[in-house]
Design a protein around this nucleic acid. Structure first.
Lengths: 107, 107
DNA sequence: CGATTCTATGTCAAATCCGACATAAAACGC
DNA sequence: GCGTTTTATGTCGGATTTGACATAGAATCG
């Protein structure tokens, strides 16, 4: 795993929160985390493109501003479920999702 | 929503378990459920292609046979997270995931 | 058929994730 | 600068998801 990736993950709080020592993360685990970060970035991008504040977005999601902020930040407490539902709520198509996923962690 | 789709969802226990009346499910909710069912079917297919029993698969996942059975059955108690991690563990690439997603609910 | 292996289903305590709230910190306009 | 709006962060009780277990049901093979 390269250094840039490591720093990105660390910045999102993936080191202290994880049950695993970071360097022992398997490839699948790394892919999984990378995927989540890619989706969270996409949520932010798409929300802004839709000219919504986090508060407005949270209303659409029937959630809270704080949780959407965490979703966009790639916080470890946010599930893939929530990220995918966020993107769908923002109007992403399946094809959009697919492109996001195939683009993430293109190792 | 067409009748075939409705029956598929019902078969996986999505009617009694849901908080919503089925016919009031929004498009995003339907896409989300469709996606989960597509992924669960893919898990089964891929596991079999890898010549693994559910018990062996569960060991790879550090989970249990019963949970993997539920994952493959599209049980409502199984999250997208678990399905995605299952596919990654079975060796699916991001491109594979992307194709699954863009293929699901091709409305 | 009976034995063995594999899969399905129900249950439950523990772990995780959730929305909500409070509040701090940025960002933006004036 | 100061107010206002937006976003970030920490916390918490409750809801959901988890792995594990027991056990039933299929499938396969002799």
């Amino acid at each position: 795993m390269d250094e840039n990736k490591r720093k990105r993950l660390e910045a999102a709080g993936w080191m202290t929160g994880s049950a695993y020592d970071f360097l022992e993360m398997t490839d699948e685990e790394a892919s999984y985390v990378e995927l989540k970060l890619a989706l969270s970035a996409a949520v932010r991008k798409l929300r802004r493109r839709r000219k919504l504040t986090q508060v407005q977005f949270a209303e659409l999601m029937r959630s809270s501003q704080s949780r959407m902020a965490k979703a966009e930040a790639g916080d470890a407490s946010v599930s893939l479920d929530l990220l995918i539902r966020s993107l769908l709520t923002l109007g992403a198509s399946n094809r959009d999702l697919a492109e996001l996923i195939s683009a993430s962690a293109h190792t």
